[in-house]
Amino acid sequence: MNTNEMIRVEKLNKFFGDLHVLKDIDLKVNESDVVVLVGASGSGKSTLLRCLNFLEIKNDGKIIIDGEQVEKETHDLNKIRERVGMVFQHFNLFPHKTVIENVIEAPTQVKGIAKSKAIQEGKELLDKVGLGDKYDVYPSTLSGGQKQRVAIARALAMKPDVMLFDEPTSALDPELVGEVLATMKELAEEGMTMVVVTHEMGFAREVGDWVVYMHDGKIVEYGHPSELFDNPKEERTKAFLSSIL
């Protein structure tokens, strides 16, 4: 067994009622890989990400995290989620808590880390994402880009093995996209394993190790960014790429 394999998905199927949203998905994410998911709206990208941290429960197939096949019957999914961080399109910061309170919430409440230690570590993370001067403000006073960087720091505070990003820059004004992508790029360079749904093809090309193109609940094509973007093999991929460029 390859110990470098962080996530392995085999024949994953997901239904919403009669709607077949994920169809026999196979996916492998090695440690320190950055995998970028692209595809049209409704193709199942978010659902796939949400299955990976068990916010949605698969109907069928295997999800293997760090060598361990995870099933809701046999695993405490909360424990798994501690190791799989997630960043959302709309940030989902806790508006009634200050920035530092957002960051220390899970470490203190879930892991039982002492508040003083959590604050110290939280401040280091906020410094890292460039928000060293914003510890004590409420999220409502931040720009979208700053909010998303706090959300990233909040997820990192749990010291996850993997980070999932669901369109982290789609809700941002164009001029704020760069700062969030820069933070993500830095994270990738430090070796974080990441699965990223994004429409930022520049980011996919520059930071992605793999690009996965999804259509209608299936993985249509999978490859290195240069292969997939410059020499797509499938007609669907070509059509998709020309539609977004």
Partner: peptide
């Protein structure tokens, strides 16, 4: 979702 995704 945010709370759950943090393991709470």
């Amino acid at each position: 979702e945010a709370g759950r995704s943090l393991g709470m």
